[in-house]
Design a protein around this nucleic acid. Sequence first.
DNA 1: CTGTTAGCGCGTTCAT
DNA 2: ATGAACGCGCTAACAG
Lengths: 356, 356
Amino acid sequence: MPPCSGGHPHPAHSLKKQPSKPTIASRPGELTIDLVAAAAGVSTATVSRFFNSPERLRKSTAARVQEVVNRLGYVPNLLAGGLSSSRTRMVAAVIPTMSNSIFSSTIQAISDTLADQGYSVVLGLTGANDQHTERQILSIIGRRPDGIILTGAVPSANTRMKLKASGIPTIETWDLPQDPIDMAVGFSHEAVGRAIGEHILRGGGRRVFIVSAGGVRALARRYGVTKMLVENGVPEPAIATFPGITTFGDGRRAVAAHLDAGGRPDVIVCSSDWGAHGALDELRRRGIRVPADVAVLGFGDIAFAGELDPPLTTVKIDGQVIGENATKFLMKRARGQNVRHRVVDVGFELIVRASG
Amino acid sequence: MPPCSGGHPHPAHSLKKQPSKPTIASRPGELTIDLVAAAAGVSTATVSRFFNSPERLRKSTAARVQEVVNRLGYVPNLLAGGLSSSRTRMVAAVIPTMSNSIFSSTIQAISDTLADQGYSVVLGLTGANDQHTERQILSIIGRRPDGIILTGAVPSANTRMKLKASGIPTIETWDLPQDPIDMAVGFSHEAVGRAIGEHILRGGGRRVFIVSAGGVRALARRYGVTKMLVENGVPEPAIATFPGITTFGDGRRAVAAHLDAGGRPDVIVCSSDWGAHGALDELRRRGIRVPADVAVLGFGDIAFAGELDPPLTTVKIDGQVIGENATKFLMKRARGQNVRHRVVDVGFELIVRASG
DNA sequence: CTGTTAGCGCGTTCAT
DNA sequence: ATGAACGCGCTAACAG
């Protein structure tokens, strides 16, 4: 290490009291709009317009700016832009986890629709049991996104208030809350449950076994199924619950345990296709035929649900449509337009295949 | 609607020329640090310190600020904070897609490790074929994150330059680039291929069929396998390639087509466990025994690889460890420390199960 | 331990 | 069609 590596080693003897040799907070080399403007021989406003409303520049001016921007490799600081304009071109997506999330199609659709318009997605992962929802949402509000999309996470009353107070357009998805924070795009989980119940009734099933996740959404579906069955004289289903998403292993082990304990179901309802997949697998190993001996129903219509053996009967939710609707809401709001119908029911589809 | 709802309904008759009744860019109700400071009877700096270095405040002062913050529901504007401090407390994660991505464990780990420290993750989805990598990365650079983590995406030479020029710490993951942009955490795909090749040699396989994705990583693995086999007198494998991730359906159909075309492999190597899963399924339908008639190998060790029938032999990468190492790098850099070994090989593990 | 003050880089009036 | 100047909300010296 050299004893003296350049710069001003002895600032102590600087003359007088320089009123403001300002502290350099940013990296020294940082390229700013002023530098670009100077290099192009225009004002900063012109460079700003070049990026935000190029149509208002004379062609020749735009070309000149373009050239300098390319040559210098200037990338506008969106932080500063956002602070100045209070439009950050960010939307926040709050989901429980990354892993085999049923919500990935929604996030993907949001990102895809918004990327063209220069928007980015900030992720808020709350954990399977929503332990960290409040913290994540606070941190997100601090970033002042142009919109917040909640999917899967169920905010506490306190958090809901903070969201409302923030004034940030908020969209709850994958559900139809009784009292929306702001806007909502989803479907009724209870209605899904009822549809499954009706399907079971049509098939004449009577000994129903439900493998379910623990959240409020899965609970609503369970409730729909059970209500429909009980109201029609079918005995109340047996239930196994798991925290978080029902996995392949969960489905397999739940079925194994139930059978080993003497259960003889004629219908197995799983709260995810993963669980149903595991159930199918366990049944096959035991030589129990599907659907001859027992029907198996899933939820989600994952990519290969139709390619399983036998193909899986399940409920399909169009996560992409949910995402697209959510961004439509956001874009409207961004344009200052008022959204009339603040709740959209995208429905669902019971896809009957060979498994039940 | 009341005809006149307060405020200054007739600003036209304001006296003289107010030098600057500044335009209100932000929402009128926006709560700022100054308002909080005033309400607490302290200076803005004190409120700032309350959030960023509370230990430097007298307990009683902190309590007073705390009370006001709670009562008013103040959430600091991280945009302004980031602009001022040039630390945004954001890290960007660039990945191809959300859906059944092998990288989700890495992103999850990054988010989990960083959430405590107030960091958020911005997502850059580039598409399966990296069409939009450049645009996404530019938009990300504009947000001045404290770090950029590249996983799966393979930036063009041009984009690599922009990343370098940006001065933002950048970590390439899930690979060991010959010429890293900055830092890297990953493993050698070619080495994985060689390990698979060795495993095949040990098992005596000679008619190998490879179902592979199209990207450069999968290509490297394929190359490793092929080289190892050919160097040891095994005929060059047959190959079927698919763009993007190899899915369940891809695996199933590739195997079906290969068999229908007269292929009689004794080893099937898939570039994802999904593909291997599909292959297993197709083989079972055709009454071909695994591993007696043909061995099946996967890649990724997805959650239920060990629960398939038969359990799947595959290569396990610890995506979580990759994510943790990446954030370690970033945190070191954030503290201004220099990172000594800028490339970490996390290795991989060949997990031999019953399928081959 | 606390207050004062000068920018951070940009969008946005308001002139011209 | 372009320029000048202010301030978005906050952090970081520095002074006390």
